[in-house]
């Protein structure tokens, strides 16, 4: 079972994510959107979208950091005080995200206008996200110290998967809730191309910071869509 979930499924789900993303981007870029519904309702959204995004992005940032430099996390955590700060910090951002997510779900269930633009995919996405946040928080609360484990057990497993020789043993014996968290994360990846989660794979907003304000496209000049710098 472990072999299947953490040895074979990662490849299937990650392939779906990569191939699906490329497929959707090349065949139907029009559908690539964050599907914002702020236009229809913007009061509850404020209490949902802000906490959710800032909470989850912070947590995600440290996951990514740990993925690339696990030693940084382990080194920081060597000192108990720093470990407490790190864990409590992570936990509070996790709760911030949970609060935001619950607001978003509440909004989607109660507002008729928002309901009318809700697709089945949106519901699935919300289910996946709530599972992910709850298992993550459960992990942090029930089994100390998640950040250490993550860096010591899960990250080597991830790298082993990427290097095509999955060491299932590294995660096979973790508690159920942790395994759920890891497996659900894989499902999350596989969902990216098939839902509004696609907006999560965006490269363009970051360009905004260094592009000139104005964009001009010429049809008669090459390259056709060059940005012409007018002023900064």
């Amino acid at each position: 079972m472990n072999q299947f979930l953490f040895g074979a499924m990662p490849y299937i789900l990650l392939t779906i994510a990569v191939v699906g993303t490329i497929w959707r981007f090349t065949t139907n870029r029009y559908s690539w959107s964050s599907q914002s519904s702020q236009f229809l309702e913007n009061k509850t959204l404020f209490f949902g979208s802000f906490p959710w995004h800032y909470g989850i992005l912070t947590v995600l940032f440290f996951h990514i950091l740990g993925f690339f430099i696990p030693s940084a996390i382990l080194g920081w955590n060597a000192e108990p005080v720093r470990l407490y700060i790190f864990e409590i910090g992570g936990l509070s951002f996790g709760f911030l995200a949970l609060f935001g997510l619950l607001m978003l779900i509440y909004r989607r269930l109660t507002n008729v206008r928002v309901k009318s633009v809700t697709s089945g995919w949106d519901v699935l996405v919300l289910i996946i996200l709530i599972i992910q946040v709850v298992t993550g928080l459960g992990n942090a609360l029930l089994y100390r110290w998640g950040s250490n484990w993550y860096a010591a057990a899960a990250v080597p497993w991830m790298w082993s998967v990427l290097s095509m020789s999955p060491e299932v043993g590294r995660v096979g014996n973790l508690p159920l809730i942790t395994k759920a968290h890891i497996f659900n994360a894989l499902i999350f990846f596989a969902f990216i191309p098939f839902s509004r989660l696609a907006h999560f794979v965006v490269i363009n907003p970051y360009k905004y910071l260094w592009r000139p304000y104005q964009v001009v496209r010429w049809y008669s000049r090459e390259p056709r869509t060059a940005n012409i710098v007018q002023y900064k």
């Binding site: 363009n204 360009k207 964009v215 001009v216 010429w218 000049r221 940005n227 012409i228």
Partner: peptide
Amino acid sequence: SGALYKRG
């Protein structure tokens, strides 16, 4: 996103 542009 740079989606809006002015045609030259």
